[in-house]
Design a protein around this nucleic acid. Sequence first.
DNA 1: TATAATTTAATTGTACTCAATCAAATACAA
DNA 2: TTGTATTTGATTGAGTACAATTAAATTATA
Lengths: 143, 143
Amino acid sequence: MGKYDALKLDNQLCFPLYAASREIIKIYHPYLSKLDLTYTQYITMMVLWEVKKITVKDLGKKLYLDSGTLTPLLKTLEKRGFITRKRSEKDERVLVVEITEEGDKFKDQAVNIPAEVGSCVKLSEKDAKDLYRILYGLLDNSL
Amino acid sequence: MGKYDALKLDNQLCFPLYAASREIIKIYHPYLSKLDLTYTQYITMMVLWEVKKITVKDLGKKLYLDSGTLTPLLKTLEKRGFITRKRSEKDERVLVVEITEEGDKFKDQAVNIPAEVGSCVKLSEKDAKDLYRILYGLLDNSL
DNA sequence: TATAATTTAATTGTACTCAATCAAATACAA
DNA sequence: TTGTATTTGATTGAGTACAATTAAATTATA
């Protein structure tokens, strides 16, 4: 065990996480670009398809993203007519994002993406489950 | 099982990968900013500390990054005196990156980072091993 | 109540990330 | 050899990411 072995790329756990994350997002690209969505926009829509209405703060908590990323992204989705952005009447600091009828209907365009991408990613049932459990374990430990 | 269940964030495998990757990189931030390195610069240096000399193409293969990311990053490291960039004499298309004496010595500043970050990431020995194996399984399957 | 502290988004600046394109060098084929 | 295809890195443009700062609104405190 050399003094610098811990600095070898092969001994890192974060690096394959970082690389695999980006590589899988690349698999999404052809499917998402047909819908003119980026991956970040896609997961944002995914939250909104489910909850319909959410504050920027709570959206950021769900996606692990801050307003520096979300503000311009949400403005793009707003221009496209998929969402509305309105200040809360109860608390003017809070911005509430809500999906529009059009944004909700757009879900039908995306419904097959998980299956199409899933079929590209070779992973056994067990490994997929373990991976899911380990990653959420990390995230829940308030990484 | 609803028609749109596959589109729920909680049913995605890519999302926790993407989120955990970024969250762990955030743990590196305070340690790396002391050295005035970004995470991407850090893993680049890691490769060079090990191999000393490599082409941009091979570096990109190791890091799963392309020249659009690497070119400006390598120019930054060059300005800092950590590396040199020279065209190969045998093939002028090829750019060879080599670590300098100064860049190599800088390794001593970074040697404790893996241990410091590692102690922040709560993960059992077994989960760490499984995670490593699964992620490299994905990457090797030429994701 | 006045003021201090906190919360929330937005903004700013730096640095990726990558698809797409380009240009130069090299390899290959007719 | 000459034209064609491939390889390689650089460039460009759009879109994140995120730390740090700002500003407005609200809450807590003296």
